[in-house]
């Protein structure tokens, strides 16, 4: 029985069946024959498969986004029941740099990171360097993610790196960047730790960093 529910949860997610996934999540809530943590792990496993399918070119952005939305709804039902709360893999601070009001890539990253077990502090869009530095100071994340779609705003990333250095925080946090305007070459010159060509690659990188 418990295996059936977990299988339904996973297969519904992988078939992009929102109703099926929510029905399974409700069963977990109501019957309590499966530990919520097991159900959350099943969601996380399913999203890993989704991520692989995307990276291998088998699935496309619409499928990645919709799977993420299903996971978000399912987690909305399951997370309140977790005793220790979600986010056991560590804290990540994320935002889109100042002058940039695009958040699709950032939000996909956040959705998958939360479902994978990270605690995510979302600073939103148009975030200035000072706010990034303060968030690192206040939350002590192991990773800071910055998104940037516009070439005109990529200089903001360099500014954040410099300000973190000045605040003595650069060595305490790993920095990952992503977005249409950015390249591996830019990441090297900006002095960040990693560039992610897409949200799923970003999740793989922070998962490696956290040892999760």
């Amino acid at each position: 029985m418990s295996g059936d529910v977990l299988n339904q949860l996973k297969s519904s997610l992988l078939e992009l069946d929102m109703e099926g996934a929510l029905a399974a999540a409700r069963m977990v809530r109501e019957d309590r024959q499966v530990a919520v943590e097991e159900a959350v792990a099943a969601v996380s496993e399913a999203l890993k498969v989704v991520g692989s399918r995307f990276q291998e070119g088998e699935w496309f952005l619409t499928e990645l986004v919709y799977a993420g939305e299903i996971a978000k709804e399912v987690m909305g039902l399951l997370s309140p029941l977790m005793e220790t709360g979600a986010g056991g893999l560590g804290t990540v601070v994320v935002g889109t740099v100042a002058g940039d009001l695009h958040d699709l890539g950032k939000n996909i990253f956040i959705n998958y990171a939360r479902s994978a077990g990270f605690k995510v502090i979302d600073l939103g869009m148009d975030v200035n360097a000072n706010s990034f530095v303060n968030a690192v100071k206040e939350n002590s994340p192991f990773a800071l993610g910055m998104s940037c779609l516009l070439t005109s705003t990529d200089g903001e990333i360099v500014k954040v790196v410099e300000d973190l250095k000045k605040a003595g925080l650069r060595e305490k946090v790993r920095i990952i960047i992503g977005g249409a305007a950015l390249t591996e070459q830019f990441a090297e010159t900006a002095g960040v730790d990693a560039f992610a060509k897409d949200a799923i690659t970003g999740i793989d990188i922070i998962r490696n960093w956290s040892g999760g």
């Binding site: 070119g57 699935w59 496309f60 952005l61 619409t62 499928e63 249409a180 060509k197 897409d198």
Partner: peptide
């Protein structure tokens, strides 16, 4: 398109 491929499955 997005950075790594089409936004949607080409068949869609």
């Amino acid at each position: 398109g997005q950075k790594t491929g089409p936004l949607m499955r080409p068949e869609l």
